[in-house]
Structures are given as C-alpha cells and as structure tokens.
Amino acid sequence: MHEMSLCEGVMQVLKDQAHEQGYSRVEAVWLEIGELANVEIESMRFCFDVVTQGTLAEQAKLEIIEVPGQAWCMQCGKTVALKQRFDACPECSSYQLQVTGGEQMMIKELEVN
C-alpha cells in the first residue's frame, strides 16, 4: 500500500541501530511480513533498493519471511488459516473471525559488519 514509507521506516531503524549496535554496513535484512499486513512484497523489494541507495545498507540483500494469516473462529472455536480479511471460516463458513496472526511487519534480524 505504501511500501516506500515502510522502507523508509526500515531504513530509519537500520540507521538508529548502527549507533546502538556498532556497525557501519548492513549486508542483509530479514523482514517478517504477515499475509494480512497488506504489503506488496515485490513493491517492497523495489522500494528497498531505492531507499538504501547511498546509505549504509546499499546493495543489502532483502530476505522476506512470509507469515500466513491466521484467525480464531468464534462460531466453531477453531484456529483456521485466513488468506484475506473478508474470507469466511473454511470450516463453518462463518465471518465471525478474530485475526490472530499474519498482521505483522517486523524487522527480524540483520547481517552487519
């Protein structure tokens, strides 16, 4: 949706952490992106390359760990897989679903030197 803003957010964390963790180069970044986070992975890759140009993360490898969407169904009481927010429970077709996973946008770890 706004992958450029998100990548700027990632870049901000990389810069802040450089002082704290004492590194001057970022070689690789692992992001955890939930299926329901509304993030276009391909667009994220494109934007990441753009925002890292001329920074300590230039040419850094972007690894994306995709996390499947998950919800708890209030009707049948089961934890089910959810591809999209408007999907029904695959078990009982109810829409009374509480999203329990797959919404995150996290920076997991970095390879630095």
Partner: peptide, 30 residues
C-alpha cells in the same frame, strides 16, 4: 573495507566478519 581490523584481529583479508543482529522491531515503530 579493511577486514583485518575487526575485534578478533584476524588478519585474513577478504574474509567477511559480518555478524547477525537480532532486532525484532516493528517497521512502523517510529
């Protein structure tokens, strides 16, 4: 990019001394 000046002082030019850093931070944390 002098790989021989790292904390280990391992004089092995060209060998990466990169390390992993756990961050676990939300992208929208700012």
């Amino acid at each position: 990019h002098d790989y021989g000046q790292g904390p280990a002082h391992a004089h092995a030019p060209g060998m990466s001394q990169s390390r992993m850093v756990q961050i676990e931070q939300d992208i929208l944390s700012k």
